[in-house]
Design a protein around this nucleic acid. Structure first.
Lengths: 238, 238
DNA sequence: TGGTGACCAAACTAGCATTATGGTCACCGC
DNA sequence: GCGGTGACCATAATGCTAGTTTGGTCACCA
């Protein structure tokens, strides 16, 4: 069995237990036993318990970002801020670990939410990647009078609202995930979008650059997910 | 001393201790002692501890709503959704109890945040008063293609984001309250505002109706703040 | 040489004795 | 007679300690 397969088996087990029992109750012993490896082996892949759980999240983040990038490759219209955030919301909410992270589900994640090890998964980094917004601005895909810095506060704040309000919504609210995502997209398009819808040609011109940004991001999260002791060193500076 | 003055003295004391010690540590005994009344007297005004703390919040809510209404009376432009929410944000964030409530400050409020007694202070009621939004729609102060129901989800969600993100913002963020409020207003104006800015005459025509809605709301909160055992009965149905 | 599980200090839990507190109500002084 | 009070009580919160669990290590093994 390769190192990577083993890492995935351990991550599978950790994720399963995390979602069923919650962060607090899951022990390394139990993960190791169920994954069919010794406890020491877990520590060959990740330095601490929190790094292991971070990896669980990072792995889902990779899958999500790749789904986003694939959608952008299939249809350049998906690179627009509102379309991106719409898909981001849907893809994140459909993945249980990311959903727990973004909705700040303390039942599941408990202390992990405030663990310093969680930093590399900061939602802000995912949401407000300066590179992406810069590329949008360069290609005229944002309101003309909007500089990317103007988004630093309000864009993450709006997105945060749509995620964090989830656990507070009344159960009987008859609004599906897609409808919520559509409303989020509508807000963002009206707030930050260009006055006139961009032409397909303009979108297509920007798409490769944008897709590359997300593919790079996915690779960075992949490095966080698999192994810190062996394998590549994920220290990139900031 | 009148009943009302006494209620205010007790509320002053409760508020002071709440902000200094936090909900959990403040006892009725301590409040009574510092307010110079017997413990039983506190229970002549409010039925339970939570109703007392609710009253502390309600009293600040009254002050806030009256400040909002006063601004609307002084300048009808203040009735527009974005202007209202801008002022709402500022006035709420400048009042320590409301700030704690809206930012979900668990250090200060602890269990009170999830107390069922808190229901009458639900932010949603304040934010998304159907009457107010209906009046705006009637007077052409919202986007033409927007029905008030369309705001049920996204408007509270956006507002929630701006409040709830506060405790998560890095301390070094050099953004004042006014600037945050301006950004919130900008988002709401672009998202929900009419295509063209409404004329002063149109605003002035709608103002009395809108002001009346908020004055009525202030009176309702006033009933919550002062006395349930004696005085008016605040049961209005829903 | 990659992998393991016995081992250890530190953190957490259970259970209980003690204290603190919300809420009541018989009584009191004006 | 009545608005106001604080001793009183059941319950909930807290402190304490003994016992248990668990993250992380590392000497050893296959």
């Amino acid at each position: 069995m390769s190192q990577l397969e083993r890492a995935d088996r351990i991550l599978d087990t950790a994720q399963d237990l995390l979602l069923r029992w919650g962060y607090r109750r899951v022990t390394i012993d139990e993960i190791a036993k169920r994954a069919g490896v010794g406890k020491g082996t877990v520590y060959l892949h990740w330095r601490t318990r929190d790094e292991l759980f971070l990896a669980v999240g990072a792995r889902e983040a990779v899958a999500m970002i790749e789904a986003v990038a694939a959608a952008m490759r299939a249809d350049p219209a998906e690179i627009a801020l509102h379309a991106y955030m719409r898909r981001f919301f849907l893809e994140a909410m459909r993945r249980p670990v990311l959903r727990a992270l973004f909705t700040r589900d303390t039942d599941t994640l408990d202390r992990f939410l405030s663990s310093p090890a969680r930093q590399p998964l900061q939602g802000a980094k995912l949401l407000a990647s300066r590179e992406y917004l810069g590329a949008l601005a360069d290609h005229g895909l944002l309101r003309e009078d909007l500089r990317p810095e103007d988004l630093d506060y309000s864009l993450p704040t709006i997105a945060f609202g749509f995620f964090a309000i989830e656990p507070l919504l009344p159960k009987e609210l008859a609004l599906g995930l897609e409808e919520k995502a559509d409303q989020l997209a509508d807000v963002l398009r009206r707030t930050y979008g260009p006055a006139r819808p961009p032409s397909p040609a303009r979108l297509a011109a920007a798409a490769p650059e944008v897709v590359e940004i997300f593919e790079r991001l996915a690779r960075e999260y992949g490095a966080v997910a698999y192994g810190t002791t062996k394998g590549g060193d994920p220290e990139h500076g900031s």
